[in-house]
Nucleic acid binder design. Structure first.
Lengths: 201, 201
DNA sequence: CGACTATTATGACCGCTGTCATAGTCGGCT
DNA sequence: AGCCGACTATGACAGCGGTCATAATAGTCG
């Protein structure tokens, strides 16, 4: 089991990553299993081997991966900020998207949002995976806010607000092929976020 | 052309409405043409008659219908508020969703968001339809804000922020099957919105 | 070497989708 | 009546989807 770490990561992880990549571009329904295998450079037969639960399992793992990725990014944003502020963190979260859209185009959105839109009503396990991913992400943001002096009870509320606004702005930006909604969100929400820091330092 | 208004609206309009209804539940890709006809109680043959542009045309019209509907709702919310305030308008916009989710369940999201997620990269005309729908909606909200004393330049920015936050909160609420994100958005964003009203009255 | 497990490789199947082709029906207008 | 347009009704088709069945191939351990 340790001999397969040859090309970067194992083929299984590559397929999960590719699934997330494709889902965020085309949505869940339009993403085929064969397409995922091809994108990952993995053999088609590996699909039923690694994901006996079929497409549902693959999608759910892709959503989980996305949630962990987003949560990890929060930590990295934090350590990159000279003086951590709520508005600074939100600006970094937004900047990740504006950078991508400006450099590589508006091809992809958030895979968790895509999974929710496509599967919330039809596939309950995927809906739960999306909720869990959002929970991880929100938790990471809330902990970061708390570390900046935001009272515990408002930290989760503001984290939810930040992620709500970011997700919505991503959708608008993609529809308009314009980063405007994202930059507007960062600019307008920043002062509100910083105002929540308790003046005890 | 006037003889077909028998059962409520004509079959054509019913199909557009049904398409929007189904798209917001299952997404664009998972919504079949036959399913739309069945849901509208319309004959299957009418599809190619009224929508020679195929599914793409039907989806685009459904998105356009949703945009007009959302814009009209803004006007109705306005006239229903005793004293119009930005936070009051946003609270009404949010309440439309919390009411639906509490009474009929978390089955559906915003059809414009669904169309964007599913078609932004694959079908450019649908992406444009979504952008136009968001534009109508944002314009209606911005005009409402301007009428409350919000300076013109900030009105569109705040309207974009409101719709971004609402769209994101809808997704989160649907994933969690919990209205929390929506109520949080209304509560946290309200003061920020009201603070933008110029103190000239 | 033999055996056993992990992985890969295909091919087939069935269901569903959007679309087209072709008739059929209805209603009114001349 | 005759015609014509709008609408309805089916059926077929080609394509693609996920999934299963069945082998073939490593790769490793006894």
């Amino acid at each position: 089991m340790a001999a397969n770490e040859t090309s970067g990561r194992g083929p299984r992880e590559r397929m999960v990553f590719s699934a997330a990549q494709l889902i965020r571009r085309e949505g869940v329904a339009a993403t085929g299993m064969r397409e995922v295998a091809a994108h990952a450079g993995a053999p088609r037969g590996s699909l039923q081997h690694y994901f006996p639960g079929g497409k549902e399992q693959l999608v759910n793992e892709a959503v989980g991966w996305a949630g962990r990725y987003a949560a990890n990014r929060v930590a990295r944003f934090l350590s990159a900020l000279p003086e951590p502020t709520p508005s600074g963190l939100f600006a970094e979260m937004v900047r990740q998207w504006t950078d991508e859209y400006r450099t590589t185009g508006f091809a992809g959105g958030c895979p968790v949002a895509a999974a929710t839109v496509d599967c919330a009503e039809s596939t309950d396990s995927t809906r739960e995976a999306a909720a869990a991913a959002l929970g991880h992400w929100t938790g990471a943001v809330a902990r970061a806010l708390a570390g900046m002096g935001v009272p515990e009870d408002r930290a989760t509320a503001l984290a939810t607000l930040m992620i709500s606004t970011l997700e919505g702005a991503i959708i608008i930006a993609r529809a308009e092929r314009n980063v405007r909604a994202l930059t507007t969100a960062a600019r307008e929400l920043g002062p509100l976020l910083d105002a929540a820091v308790s003046k005890a330092d």
